[in-house]
Nucleic acid binder design. Structure first.
Length: 586
RNA sequence: CGGGGCGUAGCUCAGCUUGGUAGAGCGCUUGCUUCGGGAGCAAGAGGUCGCAGGUUCGAAUCCUGUCGCCCCGACCA
């Protein structure tokens, strides 16, 4: 490619609206231009990189036996009503009406369409398993699009859907896709982890995410040092611990004026925060719950939502807490009122009746259940209990003991091997076992070997193609700009003639090398824009071309080119031949 | 959706408090001199100050509304 005929629009200034480095560099280097919130145009140079990522994904999907198709981005609402998601999806689903008033949505994903399509042609077990994929534009009306193409509203996704007669076949294909994803991320040259994931609201059982490790990542990953366990913290289990030790103290009300957080109370009382019980008041399906974890722990929302009856829980408001417990946030505990509060005797009786009755359920984490002689809120403003024990007459017993806390750094790995360390990651891929959720909802059956109608098992596998471009940059850049790996660089080699307008020798040598590289099948570009050396080098670094060959009179005098790798510290002189340049590319 | 902030030249921003002829840097055009890490000088082009009302002799500036964008918190490739 001749840069004189290719739009390269770089800027020295960083756009004001870009927060993360990949977004800044993609805009500065002219890879993308913003059209609106979460809407980006891929400029020609950016499209080259995007196409390369797409092609790597396509090659690995094809090699893994998946077949490419292409579905409409606009989907009829009927399909979403069949699956039940039309009413479940919130504002994220962009809804449209056509001229007849018929309702549609812009597809945020394609489970409905693929099931609808595949079921039309699939009648027999002999036609399964099969795995369809497409690389296509999706639209999700994100609450808060940000970080450029990393979290755009319109983005490019590779989505694949497989169908199977049984769970074993699904498991086989799931592992096949998982292996394909490992190859994809390896070819992209990124440091990544495959982690156990929560399957979210797409449904289904087993799922893993592929994360590109980066400090700017939005996800927190729990990875075992010295082991193989890796999970998104949302999905990371924690190990049960021992039973509570026998009580050695009796409960004592103590004043803790204005001390609300566990750290404040522990500090005020000179106690270890690990002796504290943290209680979170939540309401689900009209019922009041207290979620109890140790003072230094956090509640894991995803785990709580998996408990029976708590799927749609919300935090209790201060008003609700006052009404139900006679307490305020900061002083909540699984305890009855002692009768020494400013509240009236009747109120206390009412609170205690509520607290003691089934209308309040205590759900304790394993560690919280194992506490003894602990400190907890007294359900009175400014008051806590010390020396409390679950067996105490005024303490409620946990109705449920479950794993509801967030895993923490330093915890033993849930699989028993290694110690947990946290990393940040950018989710670039996700593999799911969906089971029969969609095939059942949409009435998809095929005849098995016995001639009986059977609902197929389904898997789905996504790669955030456009997001990955940004993720690679997050991992591979320096003060001067992007450092592309060869596999997805817009060009592998850039030929930079110095003073070609003045020196016929330079012009001739650089044109010849450029032509030879192209003839040799190397993706090369020549910067024939007539720029001064400084701006030419600055552009080359900013747009991130891996290999740079500078040709000037100085080098040609001794039959030499100058070669520099984008990540190399210094340039070196090499023989002024195609062979010498090719040797550097290997 | 709740909270905070910003809309002035292609880009980054000043001007607004205290109304009075619209500014700088970068970029762009032309000429000359330069030419190995974003050159110098000179001369130019380029903005109905997001939009709509209102106050005023007069509004980028004050008021109201509206639209857009960005940032901080519950979801996802």
């Amino acid at each position: 490619m001749r840069l004189s005929r290719f739009p390269i629009h770089t800027t020295k200034e960083t756009p004001a609206d870009a927060q993360v480095i990949s977004h800044q560099l993609m805009q500065r280097a002219g890879y993308i231009r913003k059209l609106g919130a979460g809407l980006y145009t891929w400029m020609p140079i950016g499209k080259r990189v995007l196409a390369k990522v797409e092609n790597i994904v396509r090659e690995e999907m094809n090699n893994a036996g998946a077949v490419e198709c292409f579905m409409p981005s606009i989907q009829p609402s009927e399909l979403w009503q069949q699956s039940g998601r039309w009413d479940v999806m919130g504002g994220e689903l962009l809804r449209l009406k056509d001229r007849h008033g018929a309702e549609f949505c812009y597809g945020p994903t394609h489970e409905e369409v693929i099931v609808h399509t595949v079921m039309q042609d699939t009648r027999s077990y002999k036609q399964l398993p099969v795995n369809y994929y497409q690389i296509q534009t999706k639209f999700r009306d994100e609450r808060r699009p940000r970080f450029g193409v990393m979290r755009a509203r319109e983005f490019i996704m590779k989505d694949a859907y497989s169908f199977h007669m049984d769970a074993e076949s699904l498991e086989t294909e799931y592992q096949n896709m998982r292996a394909a994803y490992i190859r994809i991320f390896t070819r992209l040259g990124v440091d990544f982890r495959c982690v156990k994931a929560d399957s979210g609201n797409i449904g289904g059982a087993k799922s893993e995410e592929f994360h590109v490790l980066a400090g700017s990542g939005e996800d927190l990953l729990a990875v075992a040092e010295g082991g193989t366990y890796a999970a998104n913290v949302e999905a990371a289990e924690t190990l049960p611990c021992g039973a509570a030790a026998a009580a050695t103290q009796t409960a004592t009300r103590v004043e803790t004026p204005g001390k609300k957080s566990c750290a404040d109370v522990a500090g005020f009382l000179g106690a270890d925060i690990k002796q504290m019980l943290k209680c979170i008041a939540v309401i689900a399906e009209g019922k009041f719950y207290l979620l109890a974890v140790r003072g230094d722990r956090e509640v894991n929302e995803v785990k709580v939502r998996k408990l029976a009856g708590l799927k749609d829980y919300v935090l209790a408001t201060e008003t609700e807490i006052v009404k139900t417990l006679g307490s305020r946030p900061g002083f909540i505990g699984p305890v009855l009122h002692a009768g020494e509060t400013t509240a009236s005797a009747a109120d206390i009786e009412a609170f205690n009746a509520l607290i003691a009755s089934n209308s309040i359920t205590v759900i304790a984490d394993h560690e919280a259940a194992a506490l003894s002689d602990f400190i907890c809120g007294a359900n009175e403003k400014g008051m806590h209990y010390t020396g409390m024990n679950w067996g105490d007459a005024i303490a409620l017993k946990p109705a449920v003991v479950a794993d509801i806390r967030m895993i923490a750094e330093g915890d033993p790995s849930p699989d028993g091997v290694g110690t947990i360390k946290f990393y940040r990651g950018i989710e670039g891929g996700h593999v799911f076992q969906l089971g029969q959720k969609y095939s059942k909802a949409m009435g998809f059956t095929v005849l098995n070997e016995q001639g009986q109608a059977t609902t197929p098992e389904m898997g789905c596998y996504g790669v955030g193609v456009s997001r990955l471009v940004a993720a690679v940059i997050e991992q591979s850049h320096d003060a001067n700009g992007i450092c592309w790996p060869d596999a997805i660089a817009p060009w592998r080699v850039l030929v930079c003639p110095i003073g070609a307008d003045k020196s016929p020798a330079v012009k001739e040598a650089s044109e010849r090398l450029y032509a030879e590289l192209i003839a040799a099948g190397i993706e090369a570009a020549i910067d024939d824009r007539g720029q001064r050396p400084g701006s030419m080098f600055a552009d080359a670094d900013l747009i991130g071309i891996p290999h740079r060959v500078v040709i000037g009179d100085k080098g040609l005098a001794t039959q030499q080119f100058e070669y520099k790798h984008r990540k190399g510290a210094a340039a070196e002189m090499i023989a002024a031949t195609l062979e010498a340049v090719l040797a550097k590319l290997d």
